[in-house]
């Protein structure tokens, strides 16, 4: 009996969430295999082999998997899953795109966004935008589960496990990759950054995010945003933090001009220290903040950047 983790990679490097999913999987107490699908991903495979707790890395290297289209990779996972009791992935947009497809094909009821593994069949997951936590028991023989990576500390390193090719090739022709736009930033990735500085509708426009950047530069922080800021076109969608955006849990989260809706809180309330900067003394964000500063962000941010 063993666990299979579907891992992601980007530009040849392994997704850092993988080490967190492996750490989560250890609670199951079974050997852990990792499968990577893509094209020319030897580097990522080596990184996966060195994560403590990994027994084997399976690599499906084929041009057809280059863009990890759900229709293709889900079929490979269906083929491989026969030998496993658990199929896990990170609850990223890719994990969520792929795992439910595998589940339907295996006649399994999947579990999304699990934050704790209680036993081989019992898991905890937030529901209603994190307003409640459900403990659920899966009755399926194969458990298909996506893990919220921020809820698990990353596993350490080991000397490399074996890497084996996967020979099954499943190519679907129903969908084709056209293009991808990934805004290139110098900043750390939002979901793994130690410090996150986020702006909301109070920022007023995209230009004003420069004020946040000055603070983020001083702290080596990633920059996030509320949905209102993204909807208004101030910043791109991949910066949205919340129930339906990214889930972050940094050491320090600074919310600026964000009111603190339940949907936003769902994405950041597990941060270790929360700072709120808002000119409305009554803003709900203050109720979750360790340090609240009531003030005009246009005055506070330049001063903060200067004093850090």
């Amino acid at each position: 009996m063993a666990t299979l983790i579907f891992a992601e990679h980007q530009d040849g490097a392994l997704d850092p969430a993988t080490a967190r999913v492996v750490a989560g999987a250890k609670a199951l107490g079974e050997p852990i295999d990792v499968v990577l699908m893509g094209h020319q991903i030897d580097g990522a495979a080596r990184q996966a082999a060195e994560i403590d707790g990994v027994s084997r890395v399976l690599v499906a290297d084929n041009e057809a998997y280059q863009h990890v289209l759900a229709e293709n990779v889900s079929k490979v996972l269906v083929e491989l899953s026969g030998e496993y009791t658990h199929l896990l992935a990170s609850a990223s947009t890719t994990g969520k795109n792929v795992l439910p497809r595998v589940a339907a094909l295996k006649d399994v009821s999947p579990l999304t966004d699990v934050i704790a593994i209680e036993s081989s069949d019992t898991f905890r997951r937030p529901i209603y935008a994190g307003s409640a936590i459900a403990t659920v028991k899966s009755l399926d023989t194969l458990k298909i589960v996506s893990l919220r990576a921020t809820a698990f500390e990353p596993a350490g390193q080991q000397s490399a496990a074996s890497i084996e090719p996967v020979t099954v090739v499943e190519v679907s022709t129903t969908s084709r990759f056209v293009s991808e736009a990934r805004p290139e930033g110098e900043r750390p990735e939002l979901t793994s950054a130690g410090v996150v500085v986020s702006g909301g509708r109070g920022m007023g426009n995209g230009e004003n995010f420069k004020l946040l950047e000055a603070v983020a530069d001083k702290l080596g922080a990633a920059i996030g945003a509320s949905r209102a800021a993204v909807d208004a076109g101030y910043v791109p969608n991949d910066m949205q933090v919340g129930q339906t955006g990214k889930i972050v849990a940094p050491e320090l989260y600074i919310a600026v001009g964000i009111s603190g809706s339940i949907q936003h809180l769902a994405g950041m309330k597990d941060s270790r220290v929360i700072v709120a900067i808002n000119n409305d003394d009554e803003a709900p964000i203050f109720r979750v903040a360790d340090y609240g500063l009531v003030g005009d962000l246009f005055e506070v941010l330049p001063e903060l950047a200067q004093k850090l």
């Binding site: 056209v178 991808e180 736009a181 991949d238």
Partner: peptide, 12 residues
């Protein structure tokens, strides 16, 4: 909308 930005697909 994907974690890294935006992806465009063409579907039959």
């Amino acid at each position: 909308e994907i974690d890294g930005g935006l992806q465009t697909l063409s579907l039959n």
